[in-house]
């Protein structure tokens, strides 16, 4: 009887611990979106790196994601890195071969505070529906620490198998044209 109870307690503790790590992850608010549509990405940053305040958030825009428009943030400096894409994409009839590949927000977010970082982007139809799209994020903190949310799960594994999974969203088939 006692052992069963103990086991239950242990399992509950383990679950809580797991939930705790899940909350600490940097994730996307909307975790699914159809391709050939504009997606509003909200990156939720719930922690610094091992207690150190976040000073910089760097977001890598994956291939196939174009027309990126980051939302300015009071108290944060924002810059973008533009580069050419691997191929040319069609954006509403306009050939697009280069654009934002990286967004960098610089400011300060204490470990005990929470914040969101927003950008809008177009998910081209070159992305495959029913797969995951990962947006690697590097969180740079005080004292040279960094949390790199860049692990992309190998085939047959999920983000839960990793310590620092990249924020991801599930791609859905394109909506019927209106």
């Amino acid at each position: 009887m006692t052992t069963t109870f103990l086991r239950g307690a242990l399992a509950a503790t383990a679950l809580l611990a797991l939930a705790g790590t899940a909350l600490a992850h940097t994730t996307l608010e909307a975790q699914q979106a159809p391709v050939a549509s504009t997606y509003k990405a909200v990156l939720r940053v719930g922690h610094g790196c091992e207690g150190a305040p976040t000073l910089k958030l760097r977001v890598r825009i994956p291939e196939g994601v174009i027309n990126v428009k980051p939302m300015p943030k009071p108290g944060w400096e924002m810059e973008t890195v533009k580069a050419s894409y691997e191929k040319t994409y069609d954006y509403h009839g306009m050939a697009t071969s280069e654009g934002v590949r990286e967004i960098i927000w610089t400011g300060k977010l204490l470990d005990e505070h929470y914040d969101e970082f927003v950008f809008r982007a177009y998910l081209t139809n070159s992305l495959k529906p029913d797969t995951m799209l990962y947006i690697p994020v590097v969180q740079e903190c005080e004292g040279g620490k960094a949390d790199r949310w860049i692990e992309i799960p190998a085939e047959g594994k999920s983000a839960d198998d990793y310590q620092y999974p990249a924020p991801g969203l599930k791609l859905l088939p394109a909506k019927a044209t209106h």
């Binding site: 760097r58 890598r60 690697p136 590097v138 790199r148 860049i150 692990e151 992309i152 190998a154």
Partner: peptide, 10 residues
């Protein structure tokens, strides 16, 4: 292996 800032291989 951290290949680059945003790329990690295992």
């Amino acid at each position: 292996i951290l290949v680059s800032d945003f790329e990690k291989a295992s």
